[in-house]
Each structure stands twice: as structure tokens, then as C-alpha cells.
Simulated scan of single mutants.
Amino acid sequence: MTFSGIPIAALDFYEDLAADNSKAFWTAHKEIYDAKVREPIVALLAELEEEFGSAKIFRPYRDVRFSKDKTPYKTAQGAFVGVTPGLGYYVQIDAAGLYLGGGYHHSSPEHVTRFRTAVDDEIRGGELEQILASLTAAKFEIGGERLKTVPRGYPADHPRIDLLRHKSLTAGKALGAPKWLETKRTATEVRKSWQAVRPLVEWLDRVVN
């Protein structure tokens, strides 16, 4: 399967699904999901696999067992290329368009401890600051789960206290629905964004794992 772009019909599908998140709607429009959402994402990831690795394409069904929200379907199609568990590159399509990013999405207490030890180190912490500054300049948004308080064992006036609060760390960019979304250029743009995020992924892999 050759990647030729992500059709606007994929965005329209999710806009309609958000308005009618029901089994009846899903059954009636399953062919659109398969042809306009899943197939282009599969082709896109196949084109990027040689450089970044194989991807996990998330299921379209929500796990509602422990949620008050019982709507059955996700209103976005995401996929994750894992370097190690929880760490890697992310792509998503929803009604708003294309979203790209990467980083540590889930981490264990041991990972958080190693992360904070590295951030506390003048050299490694300085490296991370430079990486994040470059990503911010490239219009990536730095995210991740953070403590509201000062982590135990670190002074409140630590020069990297904001980074020390992180329990996970990501960088993402919403690209919307530019004219090239329906063309092969989308693969180039995803590759460029993931290459920009790669220093963060590699830093996290090196110091956390």
C-alpha cells in the first residue's frame, strides 16, 4: 500500500462521530473509517518504519469499564512508535487535523527517579534544557504530567525546578489541516517533526532507561 496523503474525509468522519458517538453511526460508517482513516495511517507508518521502527495503531474502541463516559468510540486515531515501553513517537488524526509528537508518555517510579537524577546533574540537565529550547523555538509544546509541589529531596530554588516536577515529558505540535495533508508531503512533514523530537527521545532513552 502506497501512502498518498490523509483525506479530509478522515477529519469529517471524526467531526460526525463526535456528534453521534453511537454503534449505529459506527456500523453505518465503518467503511469510511477503514478507507479514509485506518488505511492511510497504516500506509503512512509503513513508509516511516525503516527510519523509526514499527508502530502500534490504537484500537478505535474506548475502554469504558471504569469511566463515567460510556461513549464507545475514540474521536481520534492515534499510533505510537515505541523505542522502549512508554517512550517514542506519536501521530494522531482527529477532527482538528494532524498532531505529532514524542517523548515519555508513561513512566514508572524508577524512571522518574532516574529522570530527576539526570535533570539535577549540571551537564545532563543542561543538555535537556537545550533540547527543549530548540523544540520550543520550533513551535513544539512541552507537556507531560507534573507535580504541583516541589519534588521531595530538591530545593524550591533549583535552577531546573520546573523540569524536576515532571513525571512524564513530551513535545507535541498540532499542524491542523494544511493543504498538503491530502498529499504525499504529509509523510515528509511527519518525518521532519519526528526527527526534531528525536534528540528528546534519545536523551530520555539514554538517561531514564
Rank of each mutant, 00 (worst) to 15 (best):
M1H: 11
F3Y: 04
F3D: 01
I8A: 12
D12R: 14
N21F: 12
S22L: 05
H29K: 15
I32P: 00
D34I: 09
I41G: 00
I41E: 02
V42H: 00
V42Y: 00
V42S: 03
L44R: 01
A46T: 12
L48A: 06
E49C: 03
K56D: 01
R59G: 02
Y61D: 08
Y61E: 10
D63A: 08
F66W: 10
Y73S: 02
T75F: 05
A76C: 10
A76Q: 10
A79F: 04
A79P: 07
G82H: 11
T84W: 07
G88F: 07
I93P: 00
I93G: 02
D94E: 12
A95G: 09
G97E: 03
G97K: 02
Y99Q: 10
G102S: 08
H105G: 07
H105K: 11
H106L: 13
P109K: 12
H111W: 08
T113S: 14
R114D: 06
A118S: 10
V119P: 05
V119T: 04
D120R: 09
G125R: 03
G126P: 07
E127H: 12
E127Q: 15
E127M: 13
E129A: 11
A133W: 06
A133I: 06
S134K: 15
S134A: 14
T136F: 05
K139A: 11
E145Q: 14
E145I: 04
R146V: 13
R146P: 01
L147H: 06
K148P: 01
P151D: 02
P155E: 06
I161D: 01
L163D: 02
H166I: 06
K167A: 01
S168Y: 09
L169Y: 07
T170E: 06
K173L: 11
A174S: 14
A177M: 08
K179M: 09
W180H: 03
W180Q: 05
E182L: 03
T183Q: 11
T183K: 13
T186L: 15
A187K: 10
Q195K: 15
V201Y: 09
E202F: 07
E202R: 13
W203Y: 12
W203C: 05
L204I: 15
L204G: 00
D205R: 13
N209M: 09
